[in-house]
Design a protein around this nucleic acid. Structure first.
Lengths: 123, 123
DNA sequence: ACCATATATGAGCAGATGTTCATATATCTT
DNA sequence: AAGATATATGAACATCTGCTCATATATGGT
């Protein structure tokens, strides 16, 4: 039987040092499709404009104008980002006449912002 | 006194519909520097290769070879991403001879992955 | 019907990001 | 010391992202 450092198999053409461990992890991993969606979800938090919008909505319901003024950014830029946030189901909107109000979708958004904040604060 | 829809002020040159609300949110917002760092932190989770690495390390300590094999990606690609994860203090490493083992840095990583997973699972 | 206001969206562009390829560094073996 | 192995890193490149600008849509007021 070959040395484990020479082992190559279904996983890839690179050597594996701990084949058993890798195999075990492989079986416990969620499928790639799910992990892709998870990354896409986090990607939405990975932009300072969107984080600032989420943080603002954490405190109060706001319309696009308000967010524009608050963040000193063009209405178009804010609208584009709100579209991304809506698609990721992180915010929801309601119309009142010409004005559209945005709020956070649920508690998960706040939880994630909080855990991130904690991590940054611990040095 | 001007109509509130005509109000322009220190925030921006766009009209604000709810000046008081905006002012109140403005005062409660963390400073931009912090929000930038927060976004940078989440950005690290926003790539499927890195999420897969984190998910793998969630289950077991692994070396670069193992991750390479597990994810069917080049050693170089994995190494580059581990560098990003190290810089964000999401993983730590220990050397044992030629081999370098990676593990998750702390509980925050798991918490964030868990909250994200929850959010995706609720339809 | 017409104009103003609030928001959304498509195209285009500049800057960021992730991979590959080549190579460097570090450790172990002989 | 020389070679093999494990990892790290810089440059180059193709793709993705977020903004601007122009324009479209929707609602309200006159």
């Amino acid at each position: 039987m070959a040395n484990s450092q020479d082992e190559h198999d279904i996983f890839c053409d690179v050597p594996m040092i701990h084949e058993d461990r890798v195999r075990s992890v492989y079986e416990s991993m969620p499928d790639d499709d799910f992990l892709f969606n998870l990354a896409e979800f986090f990607k939405v938090f990975g932009d300072s404009t969107r984080v600032r919008i989420l943080c603002a909505l954490h405190h109060s319901e706001l319309c696009v104008c308000d967010l524009s003024a608050l963040l000193s950014m063009s209405q178009s830029a804010i609208s584009h980002q709100l579209r991304v946030l809506r698609a990721a189901r992180l915010v929801k909107s309601r119309r009142e006449g010409k004005v559209i109000y945005y709020t956070l979708m649920d508690e998960h958004v706040k939880q994630i912002l909080d855990v991130g904040t904690e991590h940054l604060n611990e040095r």
